[in-house]
Write a protein that binds this DNA or RNA. Structure first.
Lengths: 325, 325
DNA sequence: ATGAAAGCGCTAACAC
DNA sequence: GTGTTAGCGCTTTCAT
């Protein structure tokens, strides 16, 4: 193993000089800096992460708790993780992927000085992890927006605005009776934050536009087709549809095309590349999952750099390309 | 911060005793062990990971390089990662998610003693990372099976056997003319290991069963339907289909149902839960993605524990439930 | 502009 | 069965 002492010897300087060349925390003559840098390259030296964290009390690692098992919205999760990992690296941080989704895992990582900060996805309103994070001296950011007392900084997509945007778009296309094909029943029943926020925006926008709107939970499986059948038969006047359910989307879209042909328009709420694989959409509103991960990471890095903390950041929705022929 | 010295003082023992209680590397009287353990709980002590790795030259972290951006087979990747993370934790390891897919990232993690070992997904035959890994003193395992000289231990699904199994099953259902709807053209053209292995097994099994079989690259998009149209028109006698393409699967299966109705049978090769979302399959052969991740992790942990290294491990295919009504 | 040296918190000899 | 202590490789005062 190559140590800082090897580098110092090879460059003919002291250990501390090598350290300062790396950190830039004190002025070094150009000549010395050059010698040290070439010694570093020549030896292929990388400072020992453990030694560094022991001495400096910083790990340059961010702990990430992502819902790996969730069957729902795999694409979204993957993209958020990608955004986090990529942005973290550009800021000089690595990502430790936490195995379990519980508060214990957060404590273990934090107390053991494995991480400088924590990023947590999929937090629910009364989640015990919130209290744990609040008690920890480490900065943390939630990806998502739990309802209730907001004790921690959050980054999420603005689902409420997305509801408005979808309604505005469908109304502009001439529809007066709209239906939201949404998350699976169990998610709706839990009053998951994003489902609720989307519903709120959707209904408010319907009212503001003076059109009618209904909301329908939908399984993320081929049974989505049956849900569509039911919605269509119970609401024969509905012609504008918003689908927010990655698993159900292909089945729902296909079924809506069968029922409505050109009379129907469907807007999907999902990552752009998921929408691209579904034919016949009027438009899609893209969930910028990778950007969310990046934004959360940025916020965390700013906190680590000592900025005053910003409470909530919601990324706005945008209409993306349509796939309708 | 709570240190081992705090624990030692509170328990009225020496620092080393605390250390030995944690590691179990020497016999401790039950009474002392109890006192130490309650001091640990009472103080909420977790040993400083950096200090530990500095002193013991082991991090208890495994570096994982996963193809996060790949649009293809997100479910498979997520499941493999889940398998890795979960199994690693049960073995006492944490996972550092490497940001870039290049050899430099591996070197950085290894040289900086951030990890004890490396797990790399999606390696190609002439991948420069293979040489890097070989040169490193750290143990490593590939998830996948690059063609060519096999310098490193590998864990993968037995795609060749899956080809045989699919053919046997379709032949048993009475089909004499089979078609494999496979990976996207660019993947096929690269002669990606798994696509080649599946093709080899498929063709060999067709020959052994004395039935005819053809192979067709297919985009992972709704255009899969056009591919199916073309295959059906060019091979009117084909009635048994094997689909290996997560993105194309729903579209291909639907289209095959339109063309062939009950005359056709379709076997999908994908994770079990993906197959469950597609109606009308004769059977599916499940890609045990989570098990692959777990197996690779086990192999790595065995190497870390000093076992002689095992070169290649291929998990066998199994028929899973059908969704055909 | 550079060096010397005191820790950071832990493990693992080496004592007894 | 338990204690003492010399490092592990680095950062960061304190000197010069």
């Amino acid at each position: 193993m190559v140590t800082i002492a090897d580098v110092a010897q090879k460059a003919g300087v002291s250990i501390s000089t090598v350290s300062y060349v790396m950190s830039g925390k004190r002025t070094i003559s150009q000549e010395t800096r050059d010698r040290v840098e070439s010694a570093i390259d020549a030896l292929g030296f990388s400072p020992h992460a453990g030694a560094r964290s022991l001495a400096s009390r910083a790990t340059n690692v961010i702990g990430l708790q992502a819902p790996l098992r969730s069957g729902v919205d795999v694409h979204v999760i993957m993209q958020v993780v990608t955004g986090v990992v990529t942005r973290a690296r550009t800021q000089g941080y690595d990502i430790l992927l936490l195995a379990s989704d519980d508060a214990k895992a957060l404590q273990r990582a934090a107390r053991g000085s494995m991480v400088d900060a924590l990023l947590v996805m999929d937090v629910e309103s009364d989640d015990p992890r919130i209290a744990t994070l609040t008690d920890l001296p480490h900065p943390s950011v939630l990806i998502g927006l739990p309802a209730g007392r907001r004790a921690l900084p959050c980054v999420d997509f603005d689902f409420e605005a997305a509801g408005w945007l979808a309604v505005d778009r469908l109304v502009a296309l001439g529809h007066r009776d709209l239906a939201l094909i949404g998350s699976p029943p169990e998610v709706m029943a839990r009053h998951t934050s994003y489902a609720d926020r989307l519903a709120r925006g959707f209904l408010a926008a319907c009212e503001a536009n003076d059109v009618s709107g209904t909301i329908h939970p939908c399984p993320s499986t081929p049974e989505a087709a049956q849900t569509v059948d039911r919605v269509v038969s119970e609401h024969p006047s509905a012609t504008g549809f918003l689908v927010h359910n990655e698993g159900a989307l292909p089945h729902a879209a296909a079924r809506l095309a069968v029922h409505g042909g050109d009379r129907f328009d469907t807007v999907a709420l999902c990552p752009e590349d998921v929408a691209a694989t579904v034919p016949g959409l009027a438009d899609s509103i893209s969930v910028p999952a990778e950007a969310i991960g990046a934004a959360a990471t940025d916020m965390l890095c700013e906190m680590l750099a000592g900025s005053p903390r910003q409470a909530v950041r919601l990324l706005p929705p945008h209409l993306a390309s349509a796939t309708k022929p």
